[in-house]
Design a protein around this nucleic acid. Structure first.
Lengths: 185, 185
DNA sequence: TCATCTACGTCAATAATGCTGTCGTAAACC
DNA sequence: GGTTTACGACAGCATTATTGACGTAGATGA
């Protein structure tokens, strides 16, 4: 990459040696580095699928919906809403587009016929898989570089960052992990 | 080829008939779980600061700018643009608001007087710290729950997910790590 | 010195994604 | 049978992002 003049690395390397303050500083620097990392990793992770989305005229919101519907075939609209934590209106635009374009199907719930259970059509599964593959590349590379124990640590920290509801969701498939639309061919 | 998993939890105790397919399944489930985690962790991490932002009528874009300016006092507008990877126009709205409200100061570059180097004012430092504290709570809790080795693993995986430029940026202060907000307005 | 590039700012228009509030309908529930 | 629930839709608005065009001051090099 071309180095601009106002180079980020040459900011201020003076060191103030105070053991206690230094420890405090290290802790703060550690937390601030985590802020950086969350921003960068999330940015580049989501970017990975953007090329495909763009050529289809879809956005990241569509991708998120496809992802969660694919992973929880037969979920209700309400379930999806509380997973995404957006409003009905925000979702409806996205969902309508996906339905209209044949990526998502709605089937009335059998137990509760007010519900319109969501699932990916074949086209939806195909598209979701294409998007998945892009993000998968990055994640697999990162996992491989980092190694198994690091991945376990990653999992533990990420879990700690998310809130209780999200943790409960993550625990969901622990037993019935294959429930969704599992199985790679 | 790659080590699939460093003994995460055992998703499937029954070492079934098709061990190969099962391994494949585990790998895919692992990647998909990572997608979930990135979404949830990022969502809840960013949400942490929203209350403060809202009462000030600021958004997350303002927070990101404050964060990076605070961490790189004296950076140029161009540097900030390439860090955030947004357009000049997107940044200008945010930056103008921050300057107008007295959170950010611009000083002409000494070497290159076309530049308008950015730094937080005292008010900006105070605000940024309030926002930081909120996110810090979450991260400290997560780090403590997870433990030291897990944090190192987290760091390694996150680094693997981000792109080369971001990694180079992370390596920036490895020695001069104390540069961040050492510059008063 | 003069032409050109660079760093930054701005105007105009548009898109994607989110929000609130309201209303309607069908089905479930007590 | 009245109330709540699940969902859909309309109207309007805010935030954050985009592209493209244009201007200006200052750096830079032939």
């Amino acid at each position: 990459m071309p180095e601009p003049k106002g180079d980020l690395k040459t900011l201020d390397p003076k060191s103030g040696p105070q053991a206690g303050a230094n420890l405090l500083f290290l802790r703060e620097e550690e937390i601030r580095a985590a802020q950086d990392m969350l921003f960068f990793a999330y940015r580049d992770f989501t970017n990975a699928a953007d090329v495909i989305l763009e050529e289809l005229g879809l956005g990241r919101a569509h991708h998120r919906a496809l992802h969660f519907i694919g992973r929880n075939a037969g979920m209700s609209v309400g379930d999806l809403l509380s997973l995404l934590r957006i409003t009905k209106q925000s979702l409806s635009r996205v969902l309508n587009a996906l339905i209209e374009q044949g990526y998502v199907a709605q089937i009335p719930g059998r137990a509760d016929r007010r519900q319109r259970l969501l699932a990916l059509t074949q086209a939806g599964q195909d598209l979701e898989r294409r998007l998945y593959e892009r993000q998968r590349e990055r994640l697999v590379a990162a996992y491989r570089e980092a190694g198994g124990p690091a991945v376990e640590g990653f999992r533990r920290v990420m879990r700690g960052i998310m809130d209780e509801a999200a943790r409960a969701y993550m625990d969901r498939g622990e037993q019935a992990a294959r429930a969704p639309r599992a199985r790679p061919a």
